[in-house]
């Protein structure tokens, strides 16, 4: 999720808070210790996950991402049938703190969206890898997935980020 700013004061503050001025005392260390990473999924540097099953790729945001955002209060999703492109925004997640764009890890066509999120956006917090999935995509180029991070790599990536 690209944290593009739609700016409330707290929205800005939360990002700034991520870059703690005390490297020995990372902000959000508490969240970090609880955030989970699932094996078998692929991850982006902007904190989306993708799970490929046959010709369908399911996409959501990671536990790490939802932990940093706080309670999700609104989810903006594309229509079924829309085209998505790898690295481009397909929707947005709003929390009390911030608005974040969500980028697609793969290019292709949206074949299903999780309409439950309209009524219950908090599913992204309570179940980021299961009930909180966002879209299902039919990838146009499945080889795109190869360039994404695996679970170990992503765990390390998050640790390095939090340490900065």
């Amino acid at each position: 999720m690209a944290l593009k700013l739609w700016a409330s004061s707290t929205a800005n503050a939360i990002r700034i808070s991520c870059s703690s001025s005390r490297p020995d005392f990372p902000a959000f260390s508490i969240f970090r210790s609880f955030s989970s990473v699932i094996e078998g999924l692929k991850y982006t540097g902007s904190h989306e996950w993708v799970k490929q099953e046959g010709s369908v790729a399911t996409v959501g945001i990671t536990d790490h991402a939802q932990g940093h955002l706080g309670e999700v209060v609104f989810v903006e999703l594309p229509e079924s049938g829309a085209a998505v492109a790898k690295g481009s925004s397909f929707g947005a997640v709003e929390s009390v703190k911030a608005t974040s764009d969500v980028n697609s890890p793969v290019s292709g066509e949206v074949i299903e969206v999780n309409t439950k999120l309209t009524e219950t956006p908090g599913l992204i917090n309570s179940s980021p890898y299961e009930d909180g999935w966002m879209i299902k995509v039919r990838p146009s180029d499945p080889s795109e997935l190869k360039s994404l991070m695996g679970s170990k790599e992503y765990t390390k990536f998050c640790e390095e980020e939090d340490a900065h």
């Binding site: 690209a2 990002r15 870059s19 540097g45 900065h164």
Partner: peptide, 29 residues
Amino acid sequence: GLWQLSQCLARRLSRSKPRGMPRAFATAP
């Protein structure tokens, strides 16, 4: 107020790679 936080943020964003959330972490405040 907002303007100061935005300035702070804008400075960091302008210096960092466009790759989403990491921007907020990776760049020196």
